[in-house]
C-alpha cells in the first residue's frame, strides 16, 4: 500500500523529512545540469508541470496542422505543394515525439487528446487565426515557426531528458520551416502588386498574434518562476519576445513590408527595438475560446478522432486476433 504523506497518522514527520531530502537532491541535480530521466524520482509538481507543458506543445503541433493544411489542396505549384506537405507532415511527427515524451511521465496519448477535445487542455492560440490567402502560409512559416523556434531553442537544454531530446530534433525542422516560409514571402514581395498586397496583409494579421505567442508579460505569468528554478524554462516571456522583435523587424524591412506598429523603432541606447503595447485583452479572449477559429479547430480535431474510431478499433481487434492466432499456433 502507498502511504501518502500527510494522509496517515503513521510517520508523517519522517516521510516529510525524506521527501525534503529527495527534493533537495533533485534540485541539486538540476542545478548541476544533470538531466532528469523517466525512472528518476521527481516532485509531483514537476511532473505535472511538464505534462502540462509537453501536452500543450503536442496539441499545438497537431492543431497547428489545420491552418496550413487548409492550403494543401490549393498550393500554387507542385513544388510548393510538396514543401508544404512535408512541413505539415513534420508537425505531425513533432506531435508524435511530444506525446511520446509525455507518455514517459505516465500520461497516455488518448487521455491527453481527450482532454484537448473536452476543452480542458490548451494549445497555442496562434492557430485560432484563419489562413485567408497563400501568403498566410509564408507568414506562418516565417513568423509562427520563427517565434516557436525562439521559444523552443532553450527547451533543448530543458532539465527533463526526453523533452530536451525531442526538442533538439524538432528545432532543427522548425528552423527549416522558418526559412521556407520566409522564402515564400520573398517570392511574393518580389512578385506582382497583388502578391505583395497579400504579403503585407498577412504580416498585418499575423504580427501581433505572433508577439503574443511568448505568453503574458513576466509580471502576470503564473508559472515562470518555478519553471525557471526547475530549468524547464530558461528565459522570461518578455526577453524572448524582445528577441523575436529584434530578429523580425530587419527581416520585414528586407521584404519591403511594414509591421502594423507605428511605435516600432530602433532604440540606440538599449540596442533593441521599442514596440507598441500588445492588446492583452485579445490574447485572453482568444485563449478563453473566442478567437476567430477556436470552435472550428477543436471541432475538426474531434471529428477526425470520432470518425477514425472504428479504424483504430479495427486495427486493435486485428492485432488481438493475430496475437491469439500466433499463440494458438505455438
Amino acid at each position: 500500500m502507498h502511504i501518502q504523506p500527510g494522509h496517515t497518522g503513521g510517520e508523517p514527520t519522517r516521510s516529510a523529512e525524506a521527501l525534503a531530502e529527495l527534493e533537495q537532491a533533485f534540485q541539486e541535480k538540476i542545478d548541476a545540469e544533470i538531466k532528469i530521466e523517466p525512472k528518476d524520482w521527481m516532485p509531483e509538481a514537476y511532473r505535472q508541470s511538464l505534462v502540462r507543458q509537453i501536452s500543450q506543445h503536442a496539441h499545438s503541433e497537431i492543431v497547428g496542422m489545420l491552418p496550413e493544411g487548409n492550403w494543401l489542396t490549393r498550393a500554387p505549384s507542385l513544388r510548393r505543394k510538396l514543401i508544404l506537405l512535408a512541413k505539415v507532415q513534420d508537425e505531425a511527427g513533432h506531435g508524435l515525439y511530444l506525446y511520446s515524451a509525455a507518455e514517459t511521465l505516465g500520461a497516455s496519448r488518448e487521455a491527453l487528446i481527450e482532454a484537448l477535445h473536452a476543452g480542458k487542455a490548451k494549445y497555442s492560440s496562434i492557430f485560432n487565426y484563419p489562413t485567408l490567402t497563400w501568403a498566410d502560409v509564408g507568414a506562418i512559416g516565417w513568423l509562427v515557426d520563427g517565434a516557436a523556434l525562439i521559444n523552443q531553442i532553450p527547451l533543448c537544454r530543458c532539465s527533463y531528458g526526453p523533452y530536451a531530446r525531442a526538442m533538439r530534433r524538432i528545432c532543427k525542422e522548425e528552423s527549416f520551416h522558418q526559412r521556407q516560409g520566409y522564402e515564400i514571402m520573398l517570392v511574393l514581395c518580389r512578385g506582382t502588386a497583388a502578391q505583395k498586397r497579400m504579403a503585407q496583409d498577412a504580416l498585418e494579421r499575423w504580427w501581433w498574434p505572433s508577439l503574443m505567442m511568448f505568453g503574458p508579460p513576466d509580471a502576470e505569468s503564473s508559472h515562470t518562476q518555478q519553471s525557471m528554478r526547475w530549468k524547464i524554462k530558461r528565459h522570461t516571456n518578455d526577453a524572448l519576445r524582445q528577441k523575436f522583435v529584434d530578429q523580425s523587424v530587419p527581416q520585414a524591412d528586407y521584404l519591403g513590408l511594414t509591421p502594423p506598429d507605428p511605435e516600432l523603432k530602433w532604440n540606440e541606447q538599449i540596442g533593441h527595438y521599442d514596440f507598441g503595447a500588445i492588446d492583452w485583452g485579445e490574447f485572453w479572449r482568444v485563449l478563453k475560446g473566442d478567437g476567430p477559429c477556436n470552435r472550428e479547430r477543436i471541432e475538426a480535431r474531434r471529428r477526425a478522432y470520432d470518425e477514425g474510431r472504428w479504424v483504430r478499433e479495427a486495427a486493435l481487434a486485428f492485432g488481438a486476433k493475430q496475437a491469439r492466432r500466433a499463440h494458438g499456433a505455438e
Binding site: I62, M65, L66, G69, L72, T73, K81, L85, V88, Q89, A92, G95, L96, Y99, A300, R303, A304, Y305, E307, G308, R309, V311, R312
Partner: peptide, 10 residues
C-alpha cells in the same frame, strides 16, 4: 492531401 489534419490517427 485532403486527409491531412483529419486522419484517424497521427
Amino acid at each position: 492531401t485532403e486527409w491531412i489534419g483529419h486522419a484517424p490517427a497521427l
